[in-house]
Every structure is written in structure tokens, then in C-alpha cells.
Write a protein that binds this DNA or RNA. Structure first.
Lengths: 243, 243
DNA sequence: CAAATAGTGTCTGTCAGACAGTATTGA
DNA sequence: TCAATACTGTCTGACAGACACTATTTG
């Protein structure tokens, strides 16, 4: 805190949303086509400025989500992801953006005739690889969000949030495979997930597949923090050194 | 984004700093006594407003750190901790605060005759227990920072940052015990830390204690991300008795 | 010698990876 | 019957917790 004569700098506060879902066994992200400058016509994360002084950050995030993507807010849990506030990241001035992450089992196609008409799902791979260009520093935000999701999958029951209300163990395995980007042994996965107490509970019925033995259905259990965690095999070979 | 006539709300952007260190085998945090209203005279985290529009958040954090605590910035690594921006958290208006976390091996007493004269170290326990009252929502920020430090201790070589340039394995164990708030078996800790490749390397000399066999000295190894991680014992990991 | 701290060896239970084998369906 | 998917049993190696034991110092 400095002296009384000093006046604070003008800062614009925005929220950006990383909305992930699983479609066609691939991790996908919700993007919008920008309708105004800067970066008009480019793809970007849903988001926007805080609307008024009394609006909380999370409320702004929820508002943008329903405005731009026509998504039922109640079904999603938004989690703080990070702050992106470097000077120069936005040509309109000093914009500090707070990013939120949400993960959902299933989300509808963008609805024509609404603000969300220009929203679309894209495979996360295409963003991370650079095949799709994003406005501002949004690619970096996406990368942070995906890494967060991968870590959360290990230590929380998040994976069930990607599934519907009931699911088979194979469904759940496909979530891990899609988010982690690797293949898992179905037999070992089956045992592991069954013995992680409170992770999933039997739903009592079965689902027939096109061919083969019907699979038992499960639903999400009460446990939100997994012990022991689901370990991501890629860590075994990771020799990265970073701070 | 809304129409062109709309003007963005005024938001004040601040940084707050959670500076942790180990003193007398206890986890301690740097606090300052506020010199101005609101909460004049109360204890608070070091921090303050962004000074001008072109100042980056991390630069503001570094500036506050040197102004308020007279700490050499180069020795510390600041890490983004979170954003605290609820309306009403500051009576002066809408203040959004970005919190940073730093962890240091050893830090000097606050220097008299500087801006840092009213800075002081306090045991984290006393803050978390509510014995010490903090201004604003700073107790919550401290809790988040301590939990972050505990998790980082598991997966990174952070613990060596709490020690001096060389240390014994018992020194390192005391770091884990202080931050995690639990006791560890010294024999198992010894083996575990030795076989985590790249975590610590022998420094070649020994340190005599008041009594007992001298201990070998080590220094931080090249590895920053630990595999396998140091696992924090959980109440859930208690050994099951025979059925 | 005792007391104290440093460091080693080893048993045991748990668990992940590998993979052979069994169960149940539709065609 | 076969093909496909769902599930079970079991071996093995790695590792954490427990703890007896040895090593080296001061007093």
C-alpha cells in the first residue's frame, strides 16, 4: 500500500472457460468464434469481461457459460484454473483473465439461433498440436487445463463425471484412456477400480453390447478423493526435470 | 462481450504473498502489521496493489516482497497460488487479489528502520488454529498455501529448499515432519530418500552432533520432480489387520 | 561402560503389471 | 460352433511399514 495521492491503474478483469467433455472417445473442448475485434473470426475460449462491480468471478463464469454455450450451469462444477495477466496479452489494454475449468459427461451441440450458435466442439489434440490457432494466449490456458484434468483423474473420482449416470467399467476405462492418451489393460483396470473403495458402486442392472457378454452397470460412489490413487503409467517413464 | 456503450467495472488488482520458511523446526509464515485502514494494526499477508498498468503480476509480487520484507528476490521462486476476488472481501471496493507462494530455506529477521520493520514470522499453526487473527480473507489464503506446500513436498524436491546448501538426512526428515505435521520412522525415511534417484547427492563430508555418530552431509540433487513420490501417510493407509 | 544418534538387513503385506483361463452373449 | 466382450485367478516383482540389529560417536 502506498500513499493516498496515488491512483490505481485501470485493469479489465475477464473470465475464460475451459470446458472439457468426452465425445466419440476423444477429449474435446468448447470453443467460440470471436465476433468482434481483436482476433475477429478466430477461435477462442468462451469468456468475457466482468459485467459489474458486484459480480463475483464465479458468477461471471457461469453467466458466460450460459450466454455463449447455452449450457445448464447446475450440472457443471467450475474449478479455478489459473490467472493470465501479462501486460500485452490483449491489445485493448491491461486485461487480467481468470480461467476456470469444467468437466462434463455429455454436452449438447451448440444451439442455432442463440448466442451460442458460433460455439463448437473441437478435439483437444488439434489445439495442443497447433493445428488449430487460438486467440490471445488461449492455447496455453487449454494446455494448463488439460494437464489439470489428467492429474485430477488420478486423485479424484472425476472420471465418473465424464460418464452418464450409469456406466460400465469399460466406459470408465475409455475415459482414462482418452484423457491420458494411453491404453490400459482392461483386466487390471477392472480389479483396480473395483477395489478402490467408494469409487463406484453397482447399479444393479446390465447393459447389452452389440456382441459379447453383457456388462454390469455402475454409478459414481460416495468417495471424491481416491485412495489409493489411479496411477498414470506415463509417470514411470517420465524423466523430466523442471521447477 | 456486450455492446459498445457498456463500460467495464472498476476493479482494483492486488497481490498477496504467502512466504513460508522453517524456523526452529516449525513451519512459519511472514506476516506484516497493517499501518493503514482497513484492519489497521491487524496482521496480514505482505502484499499490495498493482502499481501501474504495465506492471506484471509477478513483478508486483517481487516488488512487494522487497519493499515489505526486505527479502532478496533472486533467492525465491514465486508460484501462483490462487485468486481471491469475492465482492465484499475488502471494504474499499472491488479488490481482486492474486496470491503467490514462496518457500525458502532460511530468511532473516525483519530489518528495523525499513518498510519491513513491522514484518514478523509467526508459526503457521497459530494462524490456522485461529489463535492469530488475520485481516481480510488471509487465513483462508494461508490455509491454501500450506496445503499446496504439503502436496508439493510429496512430488517435488522442494524439501531441500527448506534446508541449507548441505544437510543431513535427519535434517531433511525434520522438514517433512514440520510441514506435514506428523512423525516419520527415521530408518524407513533414510532408505526411501536414498533410493529416490537424483533427489539428494552426497556432499562428501560429515557433521558431528552433540552426541552420537556423525551424519553424512548431502546436497540437493538434479531431480526436481520425484519418482517415486514421497507419500504422505494417510489415515486411510493404515495397515489392515488379518481377517 | 551407557546413551544417543546414524545407518543396515530383513520380514511381511499390499499392490501393479502380465497373462492364462472362464463366463456369457449374438450370429 | 466361433467371435467378441466381460470377468476371475494367480504369479511376480517393487515397495512401504515395522523393527531387530550393527556402527560410531561423546561422556
Amino acid at each position: 500500500m502506498t500513499d493516498e495521492q496515488w491512483t490505481p491503474p485501470v485493469v479489465l478483469l475477464a473470465v475464460d472457460l475451459v470446458i472439457l467433455t468426452l465425445r466419440e472417445s476423444r477429449l474435446q473442448i468448447l470453443l467460440v468464434e470471436r465476433g468482434i475485434e481483436p482476433y475477429k473470426g478466430a477461435l477462442a475460449l468462451p469468456g468475457g469481461f466482468l459485467q459489474h462491480s458486484e459480480e463475483s468471478l464465479i458468477a461471471a463464469a457461469h453467466r458466460e457459460l450460459s450466454e455463449e454455450a447455452d449450457i445448464d450451469v447446475a450440472t457443471l462444477t467450475l474449478e479455478h484454473l489459473g490467472v493470465y495477466g501479462d501486460p500485452g496479452r490483449d491489445p485493448r489494454g491491461r486485461v487480467v483473465s481468470v480461467a476456470y475449468l469444467a468437466i462434463a459427461p455429455w454436452l449438447p451441440e451448440p444451439t442455432a439461433g442463440t448466442d451460442a450458435a458460433n460455439a463448437e466442439w473441437q478435439a483437444v489434440d488439434r489445439v495442443l498440436s497447433g493445428e488449430l490457432e487460438l486467440a490471445f494466449d488461449h492455447r496455453r490456458i487449454v494446455a494448463d487445463g488439460v494437464e489439470r484434468a489428467r492429474v485430477k483423474l488420478e486423485h479424484s473420482a472425476l472420471a465418473t463425471a465424464f460418464c452418464g449416470p450409469t456406466f460400465t467399467i469399460t466406459d470408465l476405462q475409455e475415459v482414462y484412456e482418452a484423457v491420458w492418451g494411453i491404453r490400459l489393460d482392461p483386466r487390471n483396470f477392472y480389479r483396480k477400480v473395483q477395489k478402490t473403495d467408494g469409487f463406484i458402486v453397482a447399479a444393479g442392472s446390465e447393459r447389452k453390447s452389440a456382441t459379447g457378454r453383457p456388462a454390469r452397470l455402475f454409478k459414481a460412489g460416495p468417495r471424491k478423493v481416491l485412495y489409493p490413487p489411479m496411477v498414470r503409467p506415463t509417470e514411470l517413464s517420465t524423466q523430466k526435470e523442471q521447477q
